[in-house]
Design a protein around this nucleic acid. Structure first.
Length: 958
DNA sequence: GAGTTTGAAACT
DNA sequence: CAGTTTCAAACTC
């Protein structure tokens, strides 16, 4: 079974997770010697992310990935020199990376973006900027190295990932199972592919540095926690491994950083990760590709996306990640290390905001604490961390089931988180806290969840693992972050989670033989059980007795997550061990209902604007988001959790068959009315936008065009072959808006992937009319998992995400951009390319898709940028939409600049990909010198993969 | 903790 | 597609 492999990975991860291991590692010692900062074991870790609150921790996971990236960059600075001698491979890779200009540029762009973000958030920015730049270059080099080392990886990251993924979940669980036993398990688990990969990586790393190897182990542990997400089911799992690996690395890095010097850790982690990634890529590229194709199944769970902020999301993510994320991630990751970053970036974007926020807080904390550490390193690490987090988020995992999502996302808080995430792009900030607040109860849950998730990370080493299986990727990332972040907030919360997770994982390893016993055996589960119904991860834990957790009755299964130790299910087959069975069942279910595993909650394009506005505002999601299928409540009046709409904190829509609906989040009737109003508004906006667009195009103020313009533009643009669609799209875009844009992009991606058919239909048809359609997974993701949404949005349009991140970062990143300007361009190019890819995924006709994608991409870009400028030009609606996205971010002027380009791009792209792209690229570069480069390439790949993954997943696992 | 209610999922 | 059954969560006591 795959499970064994995952377990092995997890074991390795666990080992890596432990701070001590890192310290033990020669690399660590070496770094410690080099860096003024001395390795502080546990304490340091906490310090590393003392600022991070539990929520941040969640984000941390994503951050972790970001960190890893950043770290890499950092390492280059710090360690690169030191390591240069040690890590010849690394250096070589770097040089090689140059050959891979695109990947490198992307990496750089990402790094720069992340750095920018970080700087933006952190006072220490100046130092970071310097370090960042270096880091970026180095990072790029690393990436390139990985790529160069594994060309196949770069080309076909997803496949590789897929290979690894399957195992990863298991490994993750295993890793969770025991920290202490990690090593032993590793030995035991070796069978697992993940393990193998790790080993290989280690071997590779050995050449570089023994410390690196240790790091790898650490990663594996962290990954395990993350891996859990593999839930996507087996399909995803395959992919997950790769992702997980990446995440693991990132996690590892995180943990390391936290445990000791970030710089030290980062270096080690970077080095190791690179090798690992490359190894993974090389090894599994071909196979992975195949596996990837098979993996597509799920629509990833978007639990992750839920965001409840990062933390919640992180918890959720685990599950969500599993399928969609995993696949998506995998694809990106499959690309290679680059992908890792890229993949991560995909998911990250969503997360990023939250992460950023966290980071910001952390950074502040760090800044205070940083005094001890080298300012540059700390800052850079923090930056990296943030960027990573952003990337890591894996929002990609979007489509979670309402249940899972609702759990976490249910609260408005989630919504806020989402917005925050988006906003994070532009502004890192506050959202985390806000997110938590929404509903006390909900918050608590989310917190607990997040905490749990975090805890998994923190404690991941300790225990968990089982659960994680599905969410591995996201979780891993989260865990990583957690490690860093865990310090403060999560510590308490985390423990619970950890227990649950650890239990699950341990149990998983133990129970493998008897699924039935699985739950029973692990006391850990009990821990998880403690929580209401959620696992430590924040994912629901099921209590299935007759379904064996192989039916949609099971929340875990429905969410694409493996049952964790916290689950009280009986005769559970929804475990990594039974991955094959799970996959088969999933496929069967998907054959019946291709959308069975797609997110149940989707945002309506039309609603999106309002929702967006609402997002940050308290109300936010409910109105915008809708249940795909709608509820059929008769007695609960949609006022109890029996109602899925209510449970998801979304209003009922025309698609609902409920009787006596009194859904506080929105009544059917109101919904319909709202839709009509929105329609009118959107039409108006479109007209105005078109006019504006024309103006803009004439003036060539591409850069300055507003996001809304973009939205508007998109519709008007000739590219939209279907005027109607264009309008709709524009509207939807609009709504999704600037801020929404991310969602839109996400939609495009998700919509495409998931139910290619449905999504396409949705696009074609008025999204409004088809409430379900709309949204497509993306909205759901957004809704459910703010983070997930972001991730999805990004993931689908990786590019977009990357861009968005960049955009967000732009203001700050621009400075960096100057440095990375050259890179940016390539990235931008990639980005554009990616769009088409994302669309491809969608069932929609190429043209339409393209247009739509263009819209999405543009929107994404715009949205990113928009946040800054949106407000100015955008109509109220648009503004509103933007507002929700991120009130703060909106302010960034860069976005405005960017948006114009986007429009052009959109227009061009729509009209003709060729010209448009060029212009778009140029614009992008200007607008966001730094950010565009980073994710785009990866994004494009990721997007393609994601889209494919999504399409596969949604379509049916097709 | 046991039992009931509820509505989704699964089945026919 | 509609009706019924099964299932597990939500809810109540």
């Amino acid at each position: 079974m795959d499970s064994p492999e995952p377990s092995s990975k997890t074991a390795t991860i666990n080992s890596t997770i432990n701070p001590t291991p890192a310290e033990d590692s020669p690399v660590f010692s070496y770094l410690s010697n080099l860096s003024p900062i001395q390795p502080v074991k546990a304490a340091p870790v906490v310090q590393g992310f003392p600022g991070l609150n539990s929520p941040p921790l969640l984000f941390t996971s994503p951050r972790v990935s970001a960190h890893s990236r950043l770290r890499r960059s950092q390492f280059p600075q710090l360690s690169s020199e030191a390591f240069s001698g040690k890590n010849e491979d690394y250096n070589n890779a770097i040089t090689d990376s140059d050959a891979n200009g695109v990947s490198v540029s992307q990496l750089r762009s990402e790094l720069s973006a992340s750095v920018q973000k970080v700087s933006y958030n952190n006072i220490s920015v100046p130092d970071e900027s310097g370090s960042l730049i270096r880091c970026v270059d180095e990072y790029l080099v690393d990436v390139s190295n990985s790529e160069s080392s594994n060309p196949s990886n770069s080309t076909n990251p997803s496949p590789k990932v897929a290979d690894n993924i399957p195992q990863s979940p298991n490994s993750a669980a295993e890793s969770v199972a025991d920290f202490a036993s990690k090593d032993a398990r590793k030995d035991e688990i070796p069978k697992d592919a993940a393990r193998v990969v790790v080993e290989q990586v280690e071997e590779e790393n050995k050449g570089k540095s023994s410390s690196d190897q240790k790091d790898n182990g650490i990663y594996s542990t962290s990954t395990d926690s993350d891996l859990p997400s593999p839930d996507l089911c087996t399909k995803i799992e395959p992919d997950l491994p790769a992702d997980s690996l990446h995440y693991h690395y990132s996690d590892r890095q995180m943990s390391q950083l936290s445990s000791a010097d970030h710089a030290m850790l980062d270096e080690a982690s970077d080095i190791q990760t690179k090798p690992l990634e490359t190894a993974h890529d090389c090894r599994n590229d071909n196979d992975k590709i195949n596996s990837m194709s098979s993996a597509p199944d799920e629509c990833i769970m978007q639990h992750d996306s839920q965001t409840k902020a990062g933390q919640h999301q992180s918890g959720i993510r685990r599950r969500c990640l599993q399928f969609e994320d995993a696949q998506r991630k995998i694809s990106p990751t499959s690309l290679g290390l680059q992908n890792t970053s890229g993949v991560v970036s995909c998911s990250i974007p969503p997360v990023s905001p939250a992460v950023i926020e966290v980071v910001a807080s952390v950074s502040s904390d760090r800044s205070s604490t940083a005094s001890n550490r080298p300012s540059t390193q700390l800052t850079s690490s923090s930056d990296n961390f943030e960027s990573f987090a952003v990337k890591v988020p894996m929002p990609s995992g979007i489509g979670l089931h309402l249940n899972s999502i609702a759990m976490q996302a249910g609260s408005r808080a989630i919504v806020s988180v989402k917005s925050a995430e988006r906003g994070n792009l532009s502004i890192p900030g506050k959202k985390l806290t806000s997110m938590m607040s929404p509903h006390p109860s909900e918050n608590l849950k989310s917190c607990s969840i997040s905490s749990n998730v975090v805890g998994s990370h923190l404690t991941s080493g300790d225990n968990d693992g089982d659960h994680e299986s599905y969410g591995t990727n996201a979780e891993s990332a989260a865990s990583l972050h957690l490690n860093d972040a865990k310090p403060l907030n999560n510590t308490v919360l985390l423990k619970p989670t950890e227990h649950t997770l650890s239990h699950k994982r341990k149990s998983s390893s133990e129970y493998i033989d008897s699924p039935m016993n699985y739950n029973q055996s692990s006391p850990k589960k009990k821990r998880k059980k403690i929580s209401d119904g959620y696992d430590g991860d924040g994912c629901k834990r099921c209590n299935c007795k007759k379904s064996k957790c192989l039916k949609l009755y099971c929340d875990c299964f429905a969410a694409g997550i493996y049952c964790a130790g916290s689950c009280a299910c009986q005769g559970c087959f929804n475990r990594v061990e039974y991955e094959d069975t799970v996959n088969d069942v999933r496929q069967q279910i998907q054959s019946r209902n291709p959308l069975a595993f797609c997110p149940k909650i989707v945002q309506h394009p039309t609603d999106s604007p309002a929702s967006i506005l609402g997002v940050e505002g308290a109300s936010f999601t409910p109105p915008s988001a809708r249940h795909k299928r709608g509820c059929s409540c008769k007695k609960s009046m949609c006022l109890k959790k029996y109602c899925e709409c209510y449970q998801a904190n979304v209003g009922c829509s025309s698609g609902c068959r409920c009787e006596g609906c009194k859904n506080v989040y929105g009544l059917k009737e109101e919904y319909g009315k709202d839709l009509v109003k929105k329609h009118c508004i959107t039409e108006r906006l479109e007209k105005s936008v078109e006019e504006k667009v024309e103006m803009v195009t004439a003036t060539s103020g591409l850069l300055q065009i507003d996001p809304r313009n973009q939205c508007n533009l998109t519709p008007p643009t000739p590219s939209f072959q279907c005027s109607n669609r264009g309008k709709n799209a524009s509207k939807s875009w609009f709504t999704s808006g600037r801020y929404l844009s991310s969602p839109e992009s996400g939609q495009a991606i998700y919509g495409l992937s998931p139910a290619s058919p449905t999504s396409s239909k949705n696009h074609d048809i008025d999204q409004e009319t088809t409430g379900d359609i709309m949204d497509l997974v993306t909205f759901d993701q957004e809704f459910n998992y703010g983070n997930a949404k972001l991730a999805n949005e990004f993931s689908p349009g990786f590019h977009v995400i990357g861009n968005t991140d960049d955009l967000l970062a732009l203001p700050k990143s621009q400075d960096l951009a100057s440095n990375t300007g050259g890179q940016l361009i390539p990235q931008t190019v990639n980005f554009q390319s990616t769009w088409p890819l994302s669309w491809r995924d969608s069932p929609i006709t190429p043209m339409n898709q393209f247009d739509g994608s263009g819209m999405n991409a543009l929107e994404l870009l715009n949205s990113d940028k928009k946040p800054y400028a949106m407000e100015d030009d955008t109509p109220e609606i648009l503004k509103d939409s933007s507002m929700p996205q991120t009130g703060v971010k909106v302010s960034s002027p860069n976005k405005k600049r960017i948006s114009p380009p986007n429009r052009h791009l959109n227009e061009l792209g729509s009209s003709s990909s060729g010209g448009g792209f060029k212009t778009g690229r140029k614009f992008i570069l200007r607008a966001v010198p730094s950010f565009p480069p980073l994710t785009p390439c990866i994004d494009s790949k990721d997007v393609a993969t994601h889209s494919a993954d999504n399409s596969q997943k949604c379509s049916s696992g097709k």
